[in-house]
Design a protein around this nucleic acid. Structure first.
Lengths: 214, 214
DNA sequence: GTATGCTTCAAACGAGCGTTTGAATAGAAG
DNA sequence: CTTCTATTCAAACGCTCGTTTGAAGCATAC
């Protein structure tokens, strides 16, 4: 049955999210899925391929949506910084809510995988973001000509840090979530801090203009 | 010899950082340390206790330095937002450089442990930060009376996200580091974005005066 | 000397791991 | 019915894991 394969992916997603990749055994997964251990080898080959399948179906659509939104804005002329950041952040908020509804532990798992230093993760995540970084770096450069390309890349990485953290930390110390049910309100809240954060003058360019040691 | 215990901790720190906690076996550690496998049980009891020892000696001093710096500023009167953020960020920059010099892979390991969802990590990391969050939340509330306590906590978490990401991602896509050799310059760079980010008006409170849409 | 207490060691324990095998099963096609 | 292909299954493979054991080493105190 094609059902078995599907159920293995679903079970793996749940258990990887709860106990981590190395903390989950194939026997746990197949037991949870009501399948045989050998079914993993039959349908996916290895445990690693199973992980790749799970991550791909989460991560790839995010960046696709980012590009789509940026394209839409650029069709109306050069987008301002608020629009660029909206194109960057909205897919994250959207995906975060989706994943959380599907599996409360999943966003944190994705976030943890993002900062994995294994060769596998570097390939899956790193290469994905190279194109995105370049594309958005250029758009931001047009919107904020007072910043160097290097400073833009650095600040964009800081925005990524915030987003990753939103995924990693679904609850505040108080217990409430950092991202709620109202997507528009969450976007506004993020834009309210990221727009000033990106727009702020470069301390190294403002203090003394000829001092550009990078 | 007390030397054996010390060498096990050092070897574990190197190997945990490189291959992760679950990705490192006690046999790898003791081989690297030139000791016997049973020495871990003798000196630490369990593998988990060994991890706790390593994390504690990294994380505890950071928050101690944060409190110390905030105390110093508050001795001179109510600190402004820039000073509060400096007290928050400087220990991180300082520690990041220290750890990186000691072991290039260590900062990323600490960052990954921070967003671990195991009960163990929740206890080590979460409880550590509860006091810090409360203390700095109050100081920021004094410096920025236009923000609610909830918004302050949310934004401070975003700053934490950036800091964690600095630890996790020691290199930019281009290859250069996000934090360099000049501590003052790195602090300025971080303050340049975090001060506007914290100071920005709350989009949900905005109604009467400043229309600051960018 | 003997005794004491801390430390190391080789060896083994039981368990769990990812993966493989080869037979059993089912369903559609001829 | 038979044949064929796709899928499932119990069982085993070889290996590594964290932990434990009990003896051996080796100082210091008596």
């Amino acid at each position: 049955m094609a059902r078995t394969r599907e159920q293995i992916v679903d079970a793996a997603e749940i258990l990887f999210a709860k106990n981590g990749y190395k903390g989950t055994s194939l026997r746990q997964i197949t037991e949870h899925a009501g399948a045989n251990v050998a079914a993993v080898n039959y349908h996916f080959g290895t445990k690693e391929n199973l992980l790749i399948e799970i991550l791909d179906r989460v991560v790839v659509p995010i960046n696709a949506r980012r590009i789509q939104l940026l394209d839409d804005f650029e069709d109306q002329g050069a987008p301002n910084i608020r629009q660029v950041l909206e194109a960057f952040l909205l897919p994250d908020i959207h995906t975060l809510k989706e994943l959380r509804q599907r599996n409360p532990a999943l966003p944190r798992f994705v976030a943890r995988m993002y900062s994995e230093n294994s060769a596998l993760m570097q390939e899956i995540m790193g290469q994905q973001f190279e194109d995105i970084g370049h594309r958005f770096g250029k758009a931001i450069g047009t919107a904020l000509p007072h910043l160097t390309a290097e400073e833009i890349a650095w600040r964009l990485q800081c925005v990524v840090g915030i987003v990753i953290y939103l995924f990693a930390s679904v609850t505040l110390p108080g217990g409430s979530s950092m991202v709620g049910d109202n997507t528009d309100a969450d976007l506004e809240r993020l834009l309210a801090i990221t727009v000033p954060m990106m727009t702020a003058p470069d301390p190294r360019e403002v203090a003394s203009d000829s001092d550009s040691s990078i």
